[in-house]
Design a binder for these strands. Sequence first.
DNA 1: ATAGATTCGTGAAACGTTTCATTTTGGAAA
DNA 2: TTTCCAAAATGAAACGTTTCACGAATCTAT
Lengths: 342, 342
Amino acid sequence: MTTKRGAKATIRDVAAAAEVSVAAVSAALNGKGSLKAETRERIQREAERLGYRPSRVAQAFREGRIGAIALVLPLMDSVDEQQRLIGLDYYMAIAAGSASAAFAAGYSLTLTPPLSSREQWRMVRADGVVLCDPVADDERLTVLDEIGVPVVTIDRDPTREPMPPYAAGDNYANMRLLLDHLDDEGARRIALLSADSSWAWTQDGDRAYAEWCAEHGHEPLRVPVPLGKGDNDALEATVELLQRAAPPDAVIASAEQYTAGVVNACRKLGRRIPDDVMVAVGVDSRSALQNDPPLTAIDLHPHQQGEAAVRLLLDRLAHDAARPDPVIVPSTLHRRASTHRG
Amino acid sequence: MTTKRGAKATIRDVAAAAEVSVAAVSAALNGKGSLKAETRERIQREAERLGYRPSRVAQAFREGRIGAIALVLPLMDSVDEQQRLIGLDYYMAIAAGSASAAFAAGYSLTLTPPLSSREQWRMVRADGVVLCDPVADDERLTVLDEIGVPVVTIDRDPTREPMPPYAAGDNYANMRLLLDHLDDEGARRIALLSADSSWAWTQDGDRAYAEWCAEHGHEPLRVPVPLGKGDNDALEATVELLQRAAPPDAVIASAEQYTAGVVNACRKLGRRIPDDVMVAVGVDSRSALQNDPPLTAIDLHPHQQGEAAVRLLLDRLAHDAARPDPVIVPSTLHRRASTHRG
DNA sequence: ATAGATTCGTGAAACGTTTCATTTTGGAAA
DNA sequence: TTTCCAAAATGAAACGTTTCACGAATCTAT
């Protein structure tokens, strides 16, 4: 049998050309088995001549696994609506950490674009899925469960039973850490910008804020700010806050998205940071670090969260029934100039 | 033959359980063929009962393609050195655009972590690769060519023959556009921060700058700034520039990474933007847009570049021999307050 | 020269799915 | 009852690779 024109050469074509068995070709090309050096070279020459490339998908098939883990980021959902993707540092670090851990284990990391219908989900070719920030009753988890793809989440699933394994920071403790810090630095009226959503980190943060305020006899000053596209929602909310009769002396931006808005609102109104108003952010980012002055923020170590999530997933893949314990990645408070009055 | 304990159920197990042929099971589960409704339901029930999930890798194998495209970003290279990934808006938008185009065509997008050895490259499971910012004599392209994986680059490969298809902005024209704009706004001493590298966009930009300066009788003020990890290399370079005896009245930050450094240097020295010094950026980003004042910048439309690159790649995959023409994605100059003196 | 050991190479199975040509079944028309 | 046709279901091939148990050839030591 001779090579068909136009068709890619297979291992069989090489075997025929070199007048050996397919097994010999496989051995020669993978450096296994015991072949005479001369034979090995001849096979390699023929393979080269025919432009033979092993079919990656056939190799994958034989090995029994796709060798890829899918990462589902919420920000991907906005791709089609907005031409421009808002790539948050937090998610990018998660992606990097996941990729790193996946690759260390011989897997690659697949980004999944917005997936709405079940049909679309079915075509996700991955051995498992890491899903970021599930909402309550997240339909995506339902579908993935139906399809039988193992899932690990980053940030806890608020409602699902049984709860998929997850990696996360301690959102409740983090909010209190931030509040305690601001209190130490002399803030007495601490406002909070946070989103109305069913995400666990939002809920946990709000709860911590409410409880802390109650414990300390502070009036809660929470302003809901949508997390969507509007870059200046946070700006407007902050402006409104600062113009109140009794303005706050500290503002917590719970999300990375709010950072620029809060800072620009202060600048616009001529309020100095930290002298007139302290600013702290719930999620560290480049813009917090590079701001003038640098902003106090909580580093959730998203890189580690990504790594941890992938490792949990690989655990699940290895021992089928196992349902590993959640991993709580410790967070770090970076005390910076925005919350310290000289 | 009965289902082995522990092993995943295959289509054969379902067939046995439902007492039909494997072909019937396949047809029932995929909604094809002509099966009696009753049979179809019975098969579905059995599949459900056994927890049967079609093997995605076997499906992929049958279909003859992996169904994934790999995206190689330069920033991924820093993952292991630095725990924290610097996720540039530019690359994130490329990722989003690529993902979007890939998915529209039934492919998913795979991120590949740093790949050094040939061995590592061999395990990249993708039908093709989009490689961002190739350097001169990029070893990765050599390896990919050896392995026989089709490649498309974003930004032109400076040296390789035959040159792989690519998508890119018009770097040369963009630099001149920026310079003309600053000239129009009254700048007379325009400095350029750019990197010493073999990347095409750097080279093109430098060439455009040199030629433009010569044409306009301006003294070239180019300062090389490494693109690596150091966040404050750009800051130091700018400080040095502004403290010269004859300081520039405009600074071009050619890379997104320089943005914060340049702005903070101005702030540190008390130079107002744009009154004392204009600032423009060669790559638009959130930090440019959200800065106070917003920074004039060139929008390279990286989302479209990602889309274009993937489409080129899919073209190559479809018609094997074809070597499509490069796609030059038009860029947009966003004129913002940082280069306009009220 | 023969047994044993070593080296070199082979044939065939297996992975799980889909497809397609073919066979069986059931029912209606003659 | 027989004939014919559509509907329903089947068996087997094909996808390209790796692996594994085994056979043939060559060499070494008795």
